[in-house]
Write a protein that binds this DNA or RNA. Sequence first.
DNA 1: GTTACTAGTAACCTCAAGGTAACTATCATG
DNA 2: CATGATAGTTACCTTGAGGTTACTAGTAAC
Lengths: 124, 124
Amino acid sequence: MKNDQMLSSSCSMTRTMGLLGGKWKPLIIWGIGQRRIRFGQLAAHIPLISRKVLAEQLKELEESGLIRREAFNEVPPRVDYSLTENGLRLLPILKSLSEWTSSCEAAVTAADSSSVESGNNCAL
Amino acid sequence: MKNDQMLSSSCSMTRTMGLLGGKWKPLIIWGIGQRRIRFGQLAAHIPLISRKVLAEQLKELEESGLIRREAFNEVPPRVDYSLTENGLRLLPILKSLSEWTSSCEAAVTAADSSSVESGNNCAL
DNA sequence: GTTACTAGTAACCTCAAGGTAACTATCATG
DNA sequence: CATGATAGTTACCTTGAGGTTACTAGTAAC
């Protein structure tokens, strides 16, 4: 099942998975957040993803209109990424998702308050 | 990058992707919804997924505590699936996601109101 | 002259995810 | 006696997602 096949489904949930499917896209969008961020910073921010895959996913997200890419003709080169309007509207949903995960875990290990975190300060 | 490696990350968004990563899990949870549903019904409901993969994903979701599996010792065999409390709490978030997708599309093709659907009536 | 920095790209390779087909058990029905 | 129905499992195979390494350009600093 290829991504583009899901994108042309008549079920909007299936199309959603075509848009955000895979492991990385929500993580990348979450990593960009509300700021402008350079490629290298983003890569350092999500060390589990390889640079190649990051570049690919960024390109796909740009084609989907969720992120904006601004390249500056400088030396050394500089490229800024930021979320578009559509991308920004996804952030609160991702936040809910992340909180949902935390609350599921809290239900299991209900004797530990050290792993209660939220916000954008993710380093892996 | 394997799923379990993401599950043990310190970033809750990464753990979320470990839990719901891949293309199928949100779709399956959405397909179950608030009802009890049998394996065959569910498979008919999401025809794009093969029965083998459906069985695998259901098992993983059960291990994660998002769905409940009830097998009856009848002939022919019957197995009911339903969401747990944790799974149910995911439904409104998935609904937001699906609506987000629709609204993104509406922003692009702003002259078409035929594809505005929501609810659980997904057939692919 | 060499090294570093940046944001990639190209070629290549691996592996996990996903798909297909055949098979299981048991009973009811034709 | 053969077929169908159910909920899978097993073995096998394919493929797409992801990973690794090397390379680019142009300037600045050493």
